[in-house]
């Protein structure tokens, strides 16, 4: 149970709440009662996500949720972006990882503010974790917040964090049928990055096929091909990013 937000729907932080469940068989009066609950299981998460979203909106923070399989290049893309755009946009990072602080250390090395969330066995970040991470960060107005989710294309799809953009990354060393295998992730994302295109000569990866598969799942998906290490296509990503950074509206 979290005192700050009253949320106790958090699977990874509190497993069981002791104390509520000592029933005695002889107590049963067999007076049964049906309660029509009709409640979305993700209701608590969605409420907290909207609270996060309201906070981001009020401060004009562009929050982005980065999702991919392990090793597709989320951290590398962030390292590159934080270095190249330093001084032009204010940026901060939340790193989701099951065990280690390796990724957070890599981000820290770029001189960027970073908070690590260790999810333990949890295979995704949720809105509750992000809420608490954000509380300590003192994010600046008109900034960008990157949230690197746990490497996994299934579970994070269901959990809204309150982000504005969801960026799914796939690398050319993965199968070109990924969008069809993990439709929910591609369905719920706004941008798809095809990474490691420097390796295209060496792997049987059909870019056009991936594009077609991704667009079949989500016709509105924007797709950018790039190489974090080679540098090709990075300017397309930076342009997209800049285009999403909103100028604060003056009243």
């Amino acid at each position: 149970m979290c005192a700050t937000c009253g949320c106790d729907a958090n699977g990874t932080l509190t497993m069981h709440e002791p104390g509520h469940h000592h029933h005695h068989e002889h107590d049963h009066q067999h007076r049964q009662k049906i309660v029509e609950v009709e409640k979305d299981v993700l209701h608590e998460n969605n409420l907290l996500a909207e609270r996060n979203r309201g906070y981001f909106d009020a401060k004009n923070i562009l929050a982005m949720n980065l999702v991919s399989s392990p090793g597709s290049g989320k951290t590398t893309l962030l390292e590159k972006t934080l270095t190249d755009l330093k001084g032009t946009i204010e940026m901060a990072v939340i790193e989701g990882d099951q065990q280690t602080t390796n990724d957070a250390d890599r981000i820290h090395a770029t001189g960027t503010k970073v908070v690590q969330i260790n999810t333990g066995k949890g295979c995704h970040l949720d809105a509750h974790m992000v809420l608490h991470a954000v509380q300590g960060m003192k994010l600046k107005n008109d900034s960008v917040l990157f949230i690197e989710n746990v490497g996994n294309l299934v579970c994070p799809a269901m959990f809204d964090l309150g982000e504005k953009e969801r960026v799914v990354i796939i690398s050319v060393t993965e199968g070109d049928d990924k969008p069809l295998k993990y439709p929910d992730m591609f369905h719920s994302s706004t941008l798809c990055i095809i990474n490691k295109i420097d390796l295209l000569p060496y792997v049987p990866f059909d870019v056009e096929k991936v594009r077609a598969n991704a667009l079949q799942v989500n016709p509105q998906l924007k797709i950018i091909e790039l190489s974090c290490t080679g540098g090709q296509g990075l300017t397309d990503w930076y342009q997209w990013l800049q285009s999403k950074v909103l100028q604060p509206e003056t009243v």
Binding site: A9, N10, E17, H124
Partner: peptide, 23 residues
């Protein structure tokens, strides 16, 4: 697996309802 956290959310909902109904 996110299924476990889904189950935990279901438990939380049930717990709230039980308390509300004083069952």
């Amino acid at each position: 697996m996110h299924e476990l956290s889904i189950v935990m959310s279901i438990v939380a909902i049930a717990q709230q309802e039980v308390q509300k109904a004083q069952a």
